[in-house]
Amino acid sequence: MGHCQAKYCYHHANELLATWMGVAESELSGTNHRIPIRPLPLKMLIGSDL
């Protein structure tokens, strides 16, 4: 309905995934712009090993 900030989800998810995996964002493969982007566990979003 016009409120989804998909591109930001995408950016955040990639940033976190890259950090989590210890690689550059450019090394992440198989990504594209769509919803859902990359389902991301809350613990990964927080950035801690809960």
Partner: peptide, 28 residues
């Protein structure tokens, strides 16, 4: 949406409901 706020919200949510830690966020 901004990463710092999303992280804070996720942290607070997990503090409230610990089982949420393994639940996946699909969008914001």
């Amino acid at each position: 949406t901004t990463l710092d706020i999303l992280q804070n919200s996720a942290k607070r949510a997990v503090e409230l409901v610990p089982k949420l830690k393994d639940v996946k966020i699909v969008r914001t």
